[in-house]
Design a binder for these strands. Structure first.
Length: 491
RNA sequence: GGGUUGGUAGCUCAAUGGUAGAGCAGCGGCCUUUUAAGCCGUUGGUUCUCGGUUCGAGUCCGAGCCAGCCUACCA
């Protein structure tokens, strides 16, 4: 962007004038003795008084010019503090420097703490150091920045202008920190596995392709973490997890970003039920630590509460088939496949969602995904999922058509699936071969060889971190919990 | 990919087919305790791009670009 305009020219003129005054903004350096928020808090607590000298630093976000006095808002990562700059106190030359400041500049201020006549805790400036000059104007302070495209493409402006956006991302960071704390306290080992893979396995999704020059071959960006983490179970890391990016070459939407963050965790000698305890405990731990509550309220633009999610355990458990019968009729599973299809199309109005070539289980699953999942706002473990949907799980002992799996739905979205992991290499090979169909090159034989060396029985879980954040932070778009969501490149 | 809504000053937004505007920010002036400071004055535009219709287009038509929402693939 080589664009120039009057506002930029004026700022450059101010920079030139600073240079003439002997100030080299980008060469200056300052070491703050305290944060803006810290200075306010300590003064309020009586730990600092009117004799206390402090050095604060931050971005100038507002100023009120009173002629021979200026009030300047300075903001750092901790918060805001007001600076009082008076011509007589700091001297004529220094006051000329203050006059050259523009909103957005980074400055350091040395001075004494005091309270203004209006009762605001402030720093009475003795010295002002310009440490970075902003050559472009900031978004307007009052309106903020609302243009979504600018907010996503230039997220730094969004973070400067909208405190609640910054808060959301700080909380996202805290959520991930608490996930690590929770798992590490329970003896889980964090690992890193390849993002560039020969065969992209562990999920049914279209991968991105990339190329390695010196090896002379293509690689796929991973679509799941699963198969490598299971190799580690084989290798004797009994409790293992990874938090990392997955890449799927599919459409973008309110709920989908091409790269998204997954947590996968595996526990030897666990099963899908121990994973329920793990997930429920983890989410409640996060909510308590980060939000200090188990009641999550989602609000609309007007601040009205649109839904309330209660995370208080124990969470509801219900079988997939029971939910389907509730919605589609008690006799649903007694019908012939043709009758089921007809009921789905006619009575349940799923015309747009069921293709002619859909198999029978896909018809039932359309009922689940379209009519049931969106209604599961409160935490719900959906268990005994049809085996066709999950090729990597163990068959349920009391229902041979289902697998030992739960899908945890919260906020109308699937947040986490978990399995009793399939560790029978013969059965696993058959299932994967069947799933690969004609595309046998997609079969990860190396993984199957690993299983043949013996994998302990294990419970495994995958959690979509972005969606978890959406649910916990009350965001309706995945783009509002990802700092730099994928957009089409400009120009 | 399909449908739909939108793109105007740095920001937030106006403008029946008839001189492109306001608030904030900026710039100049006044002001030594302000809080979205105030008062006076004032600069600032490829109306997303390219074509078309018209005496005349920000506005109507066509194509394209970018984005939001819905939808599809999927988590």
């Amino acid at each position: 962007m080589e664009d120039t305009n009057q506002l930029i020219e004026q700022r450059k003129a101010n920079l030139a004038e600073l240079n003439e005054l002997g100030v080299q903004p980008f060469e200056n350096k300052i070491t703050p003795t305290i944060s803006c928020q810290g200075a306010c808090a300590k003064y309020e607590a009586g730990e600092l008084n009117d004799e206390s000298e402090v050095i604060i630093a931050g971005r100038m976000t507002a100023h009120r010019d009173m002629g021979k006095s200026q009030f300047i808002d300075v903001k750092d990562g901790s918060g805001r503090i007001q600076v009082f700059a008076n011509k007589k106190i700091i001297g004529d030359d220094a006051f000329k420097v203050v006059k050259c400041l523009d909103l957005g500049d980074f400055i350091g201020v040395k001075g004494l703490m005091f309270t203004t006549k209006m009762g605001e805790i402030s720093v009475k400036a003795q010295e002002v150091t310009v440490v970075s000059k902003a050559l472009r104007p900031m978004p307007a302070k009052w309106e903020g920045l609302s243009d979504t495209e600018t907010r996503y493409r230039q997220r730094y402006l969004d973070l400067i202008a909208n405190d609640e956006v910054k808060d959301t991302f700080l909380k996202r960071s805290a959520i991930i920190r608490e996930i690590r704390n929770f798992l590490q306290q329970r003896g889980f080992v964090e690992v890193e596995t390849p993002m560039m893979q020969n065969i992209p396995g562990g999920a049914a999704a279209t991968p991105f392709v990339t190329h390695h020059n010196s090896l002379g071959c293509d690689f796929y960006m991973r679509i799941a973490l699963e198969l490598y983490l299971k190799r580690l179970l084989v290798g004797g890391i009994d409790k293992v997890f990874e938090i990392g990016r997955n890449f799927r070459n599919e459409g973008l939407s309110r709920r989908h970003n091409p790269e998204f963050t997954m947590l996968e965790a595996y526990e030897a000698y666990g099963d899908y039920e121990s994973m329920m305890e793990l997930l429920q405990g983890m989410v409640c731990h996060i909510a308590n630590e980060v939000l200090d509550t188990l009641i999550i309220e989602h609000k609309n633009a007007d601040g009205e509460v649109t839904k309330t999610i209660d995370l208080t355990p124990p969470w509801r458990r219900v079988r997939y088939k029971d939910l389907v019968k509730e919605k589609a009729g008690d006799d649903w599973f007694d019908l012939s496949p043709d009758d089921r299809r007809e009921r789905a199309l006619e009575e349940l109005k799923l015309q747009g969602d069921i293709e002619a070539e859909c198999e029978d289980f896909e018809v039932t699953n359309a009922v689940f995904e379209k009519l049931i999942e969106p209604t599961l706002i409160q935490p719900t473990f959906v268990t005994h999922v049809p085996k066709e949907l999950v090729p990597l799980a163990k068959t349920a002992p009391d229902d041979s058509s289902a697998v030992e799996v739960f899908e945890c739905c919260i906020n109308g979205q699937e947040i986490a699936p978990a399995y009793s992991e399939q560790n029978n290499p013969v059965e696993q090979r058959e299932r994967l071969e069947h799933q690969a169909g004609e595309e046998q090159q997609k079969l990860d034989d190396d993984f199957l060889v690993a299983l043949e060396h013996g994998m302990p029985p294990a419970g495994g879980i995958g959690i979509g971190i972005d969606r978890l954040c959406m649910m916990l932070l009350g965001q309706e778009s995945i783009r509002d919990v990802i700092l730099f969501p994928q957009l089409r490149p400009k120009s």
